[in-house]
Amino acid sequence: MNQFNNALTLFFSLLVEAIPFLLIGVFFSSALLLFVDERKLIAAVPKQPLLAAFAGSLIGFLFPVCECGNVPVARRLIVQGAPAAMAIGFLLAAPVVNPVVFWATWIAFRDQPEMVFLRVGFSLLIATMIGWVFSTQADLRPLMQPAVARAMPIPKRAAKKTKAPRTKAPQAEETASPLLQSGTFFLGQSDQPLQVDGLGQAALAANPTLSRPIPERLRLMLDNVIQELRELGGILIIGSAIAALVQVSVPRDLILSLGQGPVSSILAMMLLAAVVSICSTVDSFFALSFASTFTTGSLLAFLVFGPMIDLKNFALLLTVFRGRAILYLFVLAGQLTFLLTLLINLYVS
């Protein structure tokens, strides 16, 4: 009974600490989604791939969104012709490289400020590197979901090649009925089954709300706040419950033996990050509950890898990318996170 009460106390303490940050996060993301025109951003980004990837990674400071908000934004960036490097950099870094997450991590790890900087630094590094890798693919369309690929402008370099037999993807798209597209299964679960995201090219291309009058935008912003709060709140509750249960019910010996090994701790935390899918604005509190038993490197792995790839994110990414591209992202991000945090475990802490 005592154990149960401890678990509940942990559970509510995580929730009570995390909800203010969740609230700040969704307010920011809703406001910016509805008031910022990302086309202007794209125009300002440098053309050189490495710089574009880095610039993309930093855009999170303008769009403080967590990993659920960044996929739609990244998709709009891609559809509007943003360089691959920039879009991928943004996709991977934005959930971490933004002021709200910075603040939340700072509060959680007040006594270890290096955690905050390492988290942001590693995320920037990994996102820039993967963005750079993706920039070698001049035409991103074969990696995209058909609906997104169709809405994308044809890159100049790739346009010359369109007659080449290599690009099979666009042909396949033309024959596919809109109803058969893989993006639709997901939206069948949402409030508005018929307004399938991937279908309306016009809806994809521009932020559809920017043309609305201000009062209407405010109303939409509030609705968006509630939608995100509901969705992320649900996941936060499940995540907190898992954290509390693991802390109280898993034998301490097991946690210690797992959590103190330089390699095992990182792998365990990365797995946990992928499964728990907790929002990046609040995941530092989740990680905090493991701070006394897990290595610093493994906590970093959780904080860096989780926002990039997790189960919830996977479903969201499938609305933009084909499975193959997501696999590349997953493998690259996983390996880089593992290597960097292993370095921390072996040589720093």
Binding site: D191, Q227, G234, I237
Partner: peptide
């Protein structure tokens, strides 16, 4: 009603709100 910027949702409608409500009432 369909004019809202589509937010991608993972769970069936009502699921998250019901969970949030239940946890709050328990709390």
């Amino acid at each position: 009603q369909g004019d809202l910027l589509q937010h991608l949702s993972l769970f069936p409608p009502g699921w998250s709100s019901a969970l949030l409500l239940a946890v709050a009432l328990f709390g």
